[in-house]
Simulated assay, not measured.
Amino acid sequence: MSQNRQGTDKPKRAAPKTAFKKGVSGNPGGRPKRTPEELDLIAACKDRTPAALAVIESIMLEGENERNKLSAAMAIIERGYGKPIQPVESSGPNGGPIENVTRIEMVALNGDGTDRAA
C-alpha cells in the first residue's frame, strides 16, 4: 500500500473525559457583560481623549523625547477606543492573485489491496 504522510497512519487517540461534548457549547453563557466599573472607566478615558490628543500634538510639534507622556496618552486613547486596526494584504508572487492548487492522486491496487507499483 502507498505510504501515508507522516503521522496520518497512527490510530486515533480517544478523547479525554474532560473534552467538549459534540453539540454542546464550551461557553454556554457567552462573553461576560462589562461591569459598571469597566463602563465608568471607558467613559472616563473617552472624556480624557481631547487632552491625550493635545499631549500627542505637543510632542509632535515640540519634538523632545517624551516617551512616557506619549505612552500615557496612547494608553488613554486605546482604553477608550481600542487599538487601531492594521489591515493585512494577502497576495501571490509579485503582488498577483493567490493561486490555490488541488492535487488528486489515484493509486491502483491489486485485488488483495496492495499497491500495484510496489
Rank of each mutant, 00 (worst) to 15 (best):
R67C: 04
I59L: 11
E99H: 03
N110R: 05
G29K: 14
G82S: 05
S2E: 09
S71F: 02
S71A: 12
A14S: 13
T114A: 08
T18R: 15
D47L: 07
Q6N: 08
N94I: 01
M1A: 10
E105V: 10
G95R: 01
R103K: 11
E78Y: 09
I56Q: 10
N65I: 07
E105C: 03
I104L: 04
L53G: 15
N100M: 03
V88K: 05
E105A: 06
N65R: 11
P97Y: 01
A54P: 08
T114V: 06
K21D: 11
N94R: 05
G7F: 14
Q6T: 11
A14W: 02
P36Y: 11
G96E: 03
S71L: 07
K69C: 02
S90G: 02
I98F: 01
M106I: 02
P11Q: 12
N65V: 05
P36I: 11
S2G: 03
T8V: 07
R48M: 14
I42D: 09
S25T: 13
I59F: 09
K69T: 02
I77R: 02
R79C: 04
V101M: 01
A118Y: 05
R31P: 04
V24C: 10
A15G: 07
K46I: 06
R116S: 11
E57V: 08
N68R: 13
R103W: 01
A19L: 07
N4W: 06
A117W: 03
G95T: 02
I77A: 04
M74F: 04
V107K: 10
E57W: 05
V24Y: 10
V24A: 14
L61G: 06
A75W: 03
N65A: 06
T18I: 11
S25H: 12
E99F: 02
E105G: 07
M1V: 04
Q3Y: 11
S91C: 00
I76V: 09
N65W: 09
K12Y: 05
Y81K: 02
P16T: 12
E78Q: 06
I98A: 00
I85W: 00
V24S: 12
D47Q: 14
K17S: 13
Q3I: 10
P87W: 00
R67D: 12
K69D: 07
G111R: 07
A118V: 08
N110M: 04
V101L: 06
E78A: 04
Q3R: 12
G96K: 02
L70N: 04
A73T: 03
A15R: 14
A51T: 13
Y81D: 00
E62D: 08
A44K: 15
M74D: 02
D40R: 15
I77M: 06
N27E: 14
K69F: 07
E57T: 15
Q6P: 08
P28R: 11
P84F: 00
S91N: 06
P28H: 12
A117E: 09
N94H: 00
E62Q: 09
V88Q: 04
G95E: 01
K83P: 01
N68V: 08
L39A: 13
G92A: 00
D40S: 14
A51E: 15
